[in-house]
């Protein structure tokens, strides 16, 4: 089954067409047929749709050949994150195919176990972190691909204290790299951003089972910046 995978939760904007087949031992059963990823935090809106168009063309597929769409739900900077989700939702509606959401940090958690070799145990607990701007990171902790904390947003120094208490040894993701000086963890070099393979693998079971499509609700983790209207300021001199 051909599945379109989109993620725009980090400075990387990613589109890929993935073949989802049957899994084997140490094999998630997903093959990336064509993928594009560009790192430009300010151009998600410009980059994503041409990427989708180009991955489909590369394998000679039409949009109607897609069986499902998988999208990274974040957490991530809001404006860019919405680009991926609304593109996925619109395409899903237009094609009348299901959409499935995956926490973008989970993709990094999945990759952390993967980069140590299929079938090999992950090196204890792993921190997955992406840049949340404002000197904060989005983060979650994984034990052998299973998320053991809720996705959160916080200051690197506070995250360092939290993961120390949890016995986390290593870290993955651009957020971990950016704040390596504050996070005393062994850094996994790649991937820095959620990969299409990981996102597809995390949704593959739902895709194969033909589960009902999901509404793609972003993991914002922060409220909008807005303050209720204050009393009016006087214009006359006292």
């Amino acid at each position: 089954m051909l599945v379109l995978v989109l993620d725009s939760a980090t400075p990387a904007v990613t589109a890929a067409v993935v073949e989802v087949g049957e899994p084997g031992v140490g094999d998630p059963g997903v093959v990336v047929r064509a993928g594009r990823s560009a790192v430009d935090a300010r151009a998600h809106g410009e980059l994503l749709a041409p990427q989708v168009d180009s991955v489909l063309r590369e394998i000679g597929a039409r949009p109607r050949d897609l069986a499902a769409i998988v999208a990274g739900l974040g957490p991530g900077p809001f404006t860019g994150l919405r680009v991926g989700l609304v593109t996925a939702a619109g395409m899903g509606q237009a094609l009348d195919i299901p959409t499935y959401g995956v926490c973008s940090l989970d993709a990094l958690g999945w990759s952390a176990a993967r980069v140590n070799g299929p079938g090999r145990a992950a090196p204890g607990k792993v921190l997955a972190a992406t840049d949340a701007r404002r000197r904060e990171i989005y983060w979650a902790v994984y034990a052998d691909r299973v998320r053991v904390t809720e996705p959160q947003v916080g200051r690197p120094v506070d995250v360092a204290a939290a993961v120390a208490r949890m016995g986390v040894l290593s870290a993955i993701g651009e957020g971990a790299h950016k704040y390596a000086a504050v996070l005393p963890l062994a850094l996994l070099d790649e991937p820095r951003y959620p990969t299409a393979e990981a996102l597809a693998a995390l949704a593959a079971e739902r895709v194969r089972a033909g589960r009902p499509g999901e509404r793609l609700t972003p993991l914002y983790l922060r409220r909008p910046d807005a303050v209720a209207a204050a009393g009016r300021k006087p214009v006359l001199q006292a």
Binding site: D53, R62, P63, R82, V83, V86, T87, A89, M91
Partner: peptide, 20 residues
Amino acid sequence: LAGALLVGVAAAKGYAVAAE
């Protein structure tokens, strides 16, 4: 509003790409 416009533009692109 930049962020608001972007939702509509990205949605329109999704519809346009999907429906060709």
